[in-house]
Design a protein around this nucleic acid. Structure first.
Length: 425
RNA sequence: GUGGGUGUAGCUCAGUUGGCUAGAGCACCAGAUUGUGGCUCUGGGGGCCGUGGGUUCAAGUCCCAUCAUCCACCCCA
């Protein structure tokens, strides 16, 4: 049987990679402008990092990780997300005793053993930022503004920003208790998943998409009514900072992050029309994470965005110009015995910083022309007996079909000018 | 993990109630055009019909299994 890419993985072919490069450039440049610098962490880590950093009760850890034993029997896991690795690196290199906050961005493949679907893969790519070492609500706002700026620059017209506050270790347990008391009498009306959630992580019952559950809990107590004064103030400052910077948002009581080290701000960006997996990016504040991973009690905030989903979203608003990647110059030989000169000329042009290619399949001049046309070469240079003898090469502009005899000695230095003229046409 | 749809050429797909050597368009290669692309015409190469079993005189077509893929649930990015 033919070997195919494993389930949930795929190839990004050259035709597509131009689009990826376009997106990656915007991502990195925008994060850079916001003061974030790149960090590259390993693609696999000790399994324990994710168990502690993501949370053992989460779906990610309990059923979606690519975990294996290495040859020395260490339990290794292909990273399912990027935040835990950043927290680990932050602690490992002692950044907590240096200049704070530290602001990092990362980009790369993540792995989750999920069932593939529109916008969902087993190897997928995330871009994310993390800011460690400040509890200032304006930093929450900065992270959100950065995400929204990126979404806008990628051409997505109507993103929906949902935000909420999930409280802190002071007020959330109180709310949790309130919720348990509310759910207890009606728990038999909940779906089987929610009955499990009720026992393990009752906050997650709130964002169940099941209609009967939503109906059953319609009157549930709201987290926003139970926030302590500090958390209320923090949330208000985030919201007013967003408004002051022209960011629209929807307060969403049902947006929750159940784990203990998530605190205060939680947010998600949805793109209507993306299919079931409409969340293109999400994040929040995680003041308990660094401590959970074995470091000091340092706050943090960040987001991650799904690059595949982001490209899907950008495709919905296709006023982006398709990035073409033609070759500048194609060298043709009129007889195959001139291939030696063709290669030397190609090398010379490439060394001048101009993209150039030639025929390696011993094609007829006509077939070489066809080839040059198909790869959208802008100029063709022809080498034949007459050219060799008389010391010039024939340069053909493929758009206008004009041909020039250009002296062999000055050809390379004249090419940029000819290409520029070609661009103007 | 659960449910539904789909698997025929590199790609998009046709293929009748089971019946001759499995087709089209696009793409690729060559020629028409002996030193010149796009248009046109002619020819050519390409198929374990996803895989394995079964029913039948006969299976691309029917049945079962399996794998892959798509969509949804779940969850998340």
């Amino acid at each position: 049987m033919q070997i195919k890419a494993p389930r949930g993985t795929y190839d990004i072919l050259p035709e597509q990679s131009a689009k990826w490069q376009w997106m990656e450039k915007i991502l990195k440049q925008t994060a850079y402008e916001f003061g974030y610098r790149e960090i590259r962490t390993p693609i696999f880590e000790h399994t324990e990092l994710f168990e502690r950093g993501v949370g053992e009760t989460s779906d990610i850890v309990s059923k979606e990780m690519y975990t294996f034993k290495d040859k020395a029997e260490r339990s290794i896991t292909l990273r399912p997300e990027g935040t835990a690795s950043c927290a680990r690196a932050f602690i490992e290199h002692g950044f907590y005793s240096g200049l704070l906050p530290v602001k990092w961005y990362y980009s790369g493949p993540m792995f989750r053993y999920d069932r593939p679907q529109t916008g969902r893969f087993r190897q997928f790519h995330q871009f994310g930022v993390e800011a460690f070492g400040s509890d200032n609500p304006f930093l929450d706002a900065e992270v959100i503004i950065l995400l929204m700026e990126i979404v806008k620059l990628l051409g997505v017209k109507e993103p929906e920003l949902h935000i909420n506050s999930v409280g802190c270790p002071v007020c959330r347990p109180m709310y949790r208790q309130l919720l348990i008391e509310y759910l207890e009498p009606i728990k038999t009306a909940l779906c089987s998943d929610c009955q499990l959630r009720y026992a393990v992580n009752p906050l997650r019952v709130i964002d169940c998409k099941n209609h009967s559950c939503q109906a059953a809990i319609k009157e549930h107590p709201l987290l926003s009514d139970s926030l302590c004064p500090d958390c209320t103030l923090h949330y208000q400052k985030v919201k007013s900072a967003l408004s002051a910077n022209g960011i629209d948002f929807i307060h969403d009581d049902n947006l929750v992050r159940g784990l203990d080290y998530y605190t205060n701000t939680a947010f998600e960006v949805h793109i209507p029309g993306l299919g079931a997996q409409s969340a293109v990016g999400g994040g929040g504040r995680y003041n308990g994470l660094v401590k959970e991973c074995g470091g000091p009690d340092v706050p943090g905030v960040g987001f991650a965005l799904g690059m595949e989903r982001m490209l899907l979203a950008a495709d919905l608003y296709q006023d982006q110009q398709e990035p073409a990647n033609p070759v500048d110059v194609f060298i043709i030989t009129m007889e195959s015995r001139f291939i030696d000169q063709a290669m030397q000329l190609t090398t010379q042009i490439r060394r001048a910083g101009i993209s150039a290619d030639m025929d390696y399949n011993d094609r007829s001049p006509r077939a070489q022309m066809k080839f040059a046309d198909k790869i959208k070469a802008r100029l063709v240079i022809m080498i034949g007996e007459e050219e060799i003898e008389k010391g010039y090469y024939l340069v053909r502009d493929m758009q206008t079909s004009n041909q020039y005899q250009v002296d062999r000695e000055t050809l390379t230095e004249n090419l940029p000018g000819i290409l520029l003229k070609n661009e103007e046409d």
